[in-house]
Simulated scan of single mutants.
Amino acid sequence: MYAPTPDDWRQANRARWDERVAVHAAGDYYDLDSFLAGREALRDFEIAEVGDVTGRTLLHLQCHIGLDTLSWARHGAAQVVGLDFSEPAVEAARGLARSLDLPPERAMFVAADVYEAAEAVPDPAYDIVYTGVGALNWLPDVDRWAETAASLVRPGGFLYLAEFHPLTDCLDDETGSTVAYDYFSREAWVDETPGTYADPAAETVHNRSVEWQHPLGDVVSALAAAGLRIDFLHEHDATLFARYQALRRHADGYYRFPADRPRIPMMYSLKATRPAVG
C-alpha cells in the first residue's frame, strides 16, 4: 500500500535483506555452484552496452552478494569494488571472491549505505560506476543517489544503469494491460509479503519492506543535474521474471508478452558520461 515514508525504512529493509542472504546463497535462483564454475551472471545487453572493461576500475553500488560485481572482474576489469548496506551480503560476496581466487586488490566489498558511498569506498573515483537491476526502488531520494553516484565517476568515465522500467509497476499484476497504480506517486510502497523473489515459499521473519517508484524522467534529470551527459537511454521489451501472468519465457531466458499482445518497455538501460577535463 502507498504510505508516507516511515522513519525506520532503512532498518526494515536492511533486516529484510540480511535475512534473505542465506536463502539466496543456498538456492537455485542464484545457483552459486554454476556461477563459480563459470556461468555468466550479467545480462547480454549489459555486456554489449558497457563494452570492454579490460584494465578499468568499476564500482558496483547496491551489489547484494556480488555476482554481477565479480562477473565484471571475469570480463577483465582491473579492480571491482562492490558496496551494499547488508553486512551478510558483503560477507557472502567476499567468500565468493575468495573461491574465485580474486585478491582484494582485484575484488573488494564494502558494507555501507549507498548514500554514504563516497566516504566508504577506497578510491575517490572510478572509470565505471555500475548499478544493476532492482536497486533504485529501495531508495527514497533519487536526486541524492544521482549526486553520490556521479561524484564517483572519474572524468572521462561513465555511469551505467540497468533497471526495471517504472511503467511495469503501474499495471495490474495479472494481465499487465490495465493502469492500476499511479506512475507519478512519490509515496512509499510498504509491504509485508514473506519469502523472496528467489524462493517465494521460503520461511522468513523480517517481511516488512519499504520501496519507492522513480519515474524515468526523474532518473534521467537527476543524473543530468549531477553533471553527467546522457549518452543513451534504451528501453527493452523484455524482463527477467514473470511480472505478469501473461508473460512467456523465451529461449534467451527473458520474459515477454505473446506476439499478439502490444509491447511495452519492461526494462531500461542508460549510460551517462562525466566529461573529461580540458
Score class of each variant (00 low, 15 high):
Pro122Ala: 03
Pro122Thr: 01
Pro122Arg: 01
Asp123Asn: 12
Asp123Pro: 00
Pro124Ala: 10
Ala125Asn: 01
Ala125Val: 02
Ala125Glu: 15
Tyr126Lys: 10
Asp127Ala: 13
Asp127Leu: 09
Ile128Asp: 04
Ile128His: 03
Ile128Pro: 05
Ile128Ala: 05
Val129Lys: 07
Val129Cys: 09
Val129Ile: 11
Tyr130Gln: 03
Thr131Ile: 15
Thr131Met: 14
Thr131Lys: 03
Thr131Pro: 00
Gly132Ser: 15
Gly132Arg: 08
Val133Pro: 01
Val133Arg: 15
Val133Gln: 14
Val133Lys: 13
Gly134Cys: 12
Gly134Thr: 11
Gly134Tyr: 10
Gly134Arg: 11
Ala135Ile: 08
Ala135Met: 08
Ala135Tyr: 05
Ala135Pro: 05
Leu136Cys: 08
Leu136Phe: 15
Leu136Arg: 07
Leu136Val: 13
Asn137Cys: 11
Asn137Met: 14
Asn137Val: 13
Trp138Thr: 12
Trp138Glu: 12
Leu139His: 12
Pro140Met: 13
Pro140Leu: 12
Pro140Cys: 12
Val142Ala: 11
Val142Phe: 09
Trp145Pro: 00
Trp145Arg: 00
Trp145Thr: 00
Ala146Phe: 12
Ala146Trp: 12
Ala146Ile: 11
Ala146Met: 10
Ala146Pro: 10
Glu147Ser: 14
Glu147Thr: 15
Glu147His: 12
Thr148Lys: 02
Thr148Arg: 08
Ala149Asn: 09
Ala150Gln: 04
Ala150Lys: 04
Ala150Asn: 07
Ala150Pro: 04
Ala150Cys: 06
Ser151Asn: 02
Leu152Ala: 02
Leu152Gly: 01
Val153Glu: 02
Val153His: 06
Val153Asp: 01
Arg154Cys: 00
Arg154Glu: 15
Arg154Phe: 00
Pro155Gln: 02
Pro155Ile: 05
Pro155Thr: 02
Pro155Tyr: 02
Gly156Thr: 01
Gly156Lys: 02
Gly157Tyr: 04
Phe158Lys: 05
Phe158Asp: 04
Leu159Lys: 00
Leu159Tyr: 14
Leu159Gln: 05
Leu159Gly: 06
Tyr160Lys: 03
Tyr160Trp: 10
Leu161Ile: 14
Leu161Gln: 10
Ala162Pro: 00
Ala162Leu: 11
Glu163His: 10
Glu163Leu: 07
Glu163Gln: 13
Glu163Tyr: 08
Glu163Asn: 08
Glu163Val: 08
Phe164Cys: 06
Phe164Trp: 04
Phe164Leu: 12
His165Gln: 09
His165Arg: 08
His165Met: 09
Pro166His: 04
Pro166Ile: 07
Leu167His: 05
Leu167Asn: 03
Thr168Cys: 07
Thr168Ser: 13
Asp169Phe: 13
Asp169Val: 02
